[in-house]
Amino acid sequence: MIRRTLKTLIVVLSLAPLAGWMVASGSGENARAPRLAIARLQYDGGGDWYANPSAIPNLLKAIRARTSFPVETAEARVTLMDDRLWDYPFLHLTGHGNVAFTDNEALRLREYLSRGGFLHIDDNYGLDEHIRREMKKVFADREFVDVPLTHPVYRVVYDFPNGLPKIHEHDGKPARGFGIFLGNRLAVYYSYSSDLGNGWEDVGTYTTDPTALHEQALKMGINLFTYAVTSRPAS
C-alpha cells in the first residue's frame, strides 16, 4: 500500500507535461487544454469499432477510484478527422475485423501521435492483419516491436514483471505487447492476443474468464493511461 501511494504521488507530480501540452491544430485562443479522458476511435472499413461497450467506462471508474487523476468517467467517441481529436490524450482502438484509414486520416493520426498523443490498439481477435497494414500508412518507416519488460508501462503503478497479461483465450497464442516508439517515447501500444477490453467489461460478461483476470486487465489499463498522460513532451 505504501509503495502504491508513493507511485501515485509520483504520478501526480508528473502531470506538468500534460498541463502544459497543447495538441490543438490551432494555437492561441483556438488551442484547448487536453482532457483527462479516453476517446474510442471510430474508423471505417467494416470492423466493429464499438465492441466491448462497458470496457472504457469501467476502466475510467477504476482510474478515478485508484489514482489521483480526476478523469472523466464517460467514454468519448471521435474520428480521426474530428476537431475534438486534439482534446484527448488517450485514444483506444479495438474490433474484430477490417480497419481502413484514408490518406488524410493516416496523416492526421501521425500528427496526433507526433505531438504527444497516445494510441492503445486492443486486438479483439481478427484485427491483426488489418491494423498492421493501416499503421504502415501512418508510419511507413516504423515497425511494431516487442515492448521490453523493463519498460515503465509495466510498472508505473502496478507491476507486471512478465509483461502483458493474458485475459481471454482464443487460439492458445501468448499475449504480446507491441509498440511503436517515437524517439524514446512509446506512442502506440498494441495489446495482441490478450483482449484487455474483454477484461475491462462488466464482470460476468464472459463467463469463462475468472474475476481475477478482470482485476489484472484493469490494473494494466491503469498503467497504460498513467504512462500515456505522464510521458508527454512538454510544450
Rank of each mutant, 00 (worst) to 15 (best):
I131C: 02
V147A: 06
H92C: 06
F160P: 05
Y158S: 07
D159R: 09
V156W: 00
I167W: 01
N124T: 07
T150M: 08
R115E: 02
F101L: 15
F118Q: 09
A106H: 03
N98A: 01
P161G: 09
L109Y: 04
H168E: 10
F139P: 05
L107R: 14
F118V: 13
T150W: 14
R155Q: 10
H151R: 04
N104H: 08
L113H: 10
F144K: 02
H130M: 05
H130R: 05
Y158G: 06
T150N: 15
L149W: 02
E129T: 12
H92L: 01
K136N: 14
L149Q: 00
T94Q: 05
F118H: 14
G117Q: 03
G97S: 15
L107G: 15
G116L: 11
N124A: 08
L149S: 12
N98F: 04
V138D: 04
P89W: 00
D122S: 03
G126T: 07
H92E: 01
Y125A: 04
F144I: 10
F144S: 07
Y154W: 12
E111H: 15
R155F: 14
F160V: 14
P161D: 07
Y112E: 09
F101N: 08
H130T: 10
P165L: 13
R133F: 07
M135K: 02
P165M: 13
E143N: 13
N124M: 01
V156N: 00
A100V: 07
L149I: 15
T102S: 15
Y125L: 00
D128S: 14
L149H: 01
K166I: 11
H168S: 11
K137C: 03
D123G: 01
F160T: 06
L119F: 05
F144C: 06
V138F: 09
R108W: 00
G163A: 06
H92D: 05
D103Q: 14
K166H: 14
E143P: 02
L149P: 00
L113K: 11
V157N: 02
R110C: 14
E111R: 14
L109N: 11
N104W: 01
D141L: 09
I121K: 00
T94M: 06
G116H: 02
F118C: 12
V145W: 03
R132P: 11
T150A: 13
F118W: 05
L119R: 08
Y154S: 13
A140E: 11
D123R: 00
L119T: 07
D123A: 04
D122F: 03
V153I: 15
D146W: 00
R133W: 01
V157E: 04
E129I: 08
H130K: 03
L127H: 09
T102W: 12
H168R: 03
P152T: 13
L93T: 04
L91I: 14
H151T: 12
R110L: 09
G116S: 12
A106K: 07
V153W: 03
